[in-house]
Computed example of a mutant assay.
Amino acid sequence: MPREELQTASDTLRQAAEHVDEETQKRLHEQSEQLATLAVRDADPDHGRLDRHMNALYELAGDLDGEAEELVRDARNSVKEYRKTVPGV
């Protein structure tokens, strides 16, 4: 069963990539691909992995403005919402 919040985050990052330069597109696509993989793999991602993605998205959003920044923040919030459902820490 796909993890909807992680897939949503991945999709949102793809949208954000339409509004940025090529280098930033690569960074966003990398995060998007990793989140898409986490959304469908058998094992649940752990808090540490999710935290690393959240930190990367925080940094990316800080380098952006306008719609791209808003979309990256939305993606980060989707990861945050999923992380609330992960048992542990």
Rank of each mutant, 00 (worst) to 15 (best):
E18V: 11
Q25D: 01
L28F: 05
N55C: 08
T24Y: 05
D21Y: 05
R27M: 07
Q15H: 12
E18Y: 13
A16F: 02
R52A: 14
Q15W: 13
N55A: 12
V40E: 09
V40T: 15
D21G: 00
E23V: 09
L28A: 08
A39Q: 03
H29A: 01
M54I: 10
R27I: 13
A17R: 05
A43R: 15
L35H: 04
D21E: 11
A17W: 01
L50A: 03
H19E: 12
D42H: 13
R52P: 06
L57Q: 05
P45F: 01
E18W: 14
L38H: 02
T37R: 09
H53W: 08
A36F: 08
A43F: 10
A43Q: 15
V20T: 03
R27K: 15
Q31C: 03
D46W: 02
L57K: 02
K26Y: 08
R27V: 09
T24S: 08
L50V: 04
V40R: 07
D51E: 07
S32M: 02
E18L: 14
E18H: 10
A56G: 10
L28S: 00
R52E: 14
L38E: 01
D42G: 14
V40K: 10
K26C: 14
H53A: 06
L57V: 02
E33Y: 09
R52L: 12
D44V: 15
S32H: 09
T37G: 09
D51G: 03
K26H: 13
A43E: 15
N55F: 06
M54H: 11
Q15K: 13
A36V: 04
D42L: 10
A16M: 05
A39M: 07
H47C: 11
H53G: 09
A17P: 03
A43M: 15
Q15I: 13
A17I: 02
N55T: 07
E30D: 14
E30Q: 15
K26Q: 13
P45I: 07
T37S: 13
D44S: 15
A36D: 08
Q31E: 04
D42E: 14
V20P: 00
A36S: 15
V20A: 00
R41F: 12
A17F: 02
A39V: 02
Q31M: 03
E30Y: 14
H47Y: 12
L38D: 03
Q25R: 07
D21L: 02
Q15A: 12
Q15Y: 14
R49F: 06
T24W: 04
T24M: 10
R41T: 14
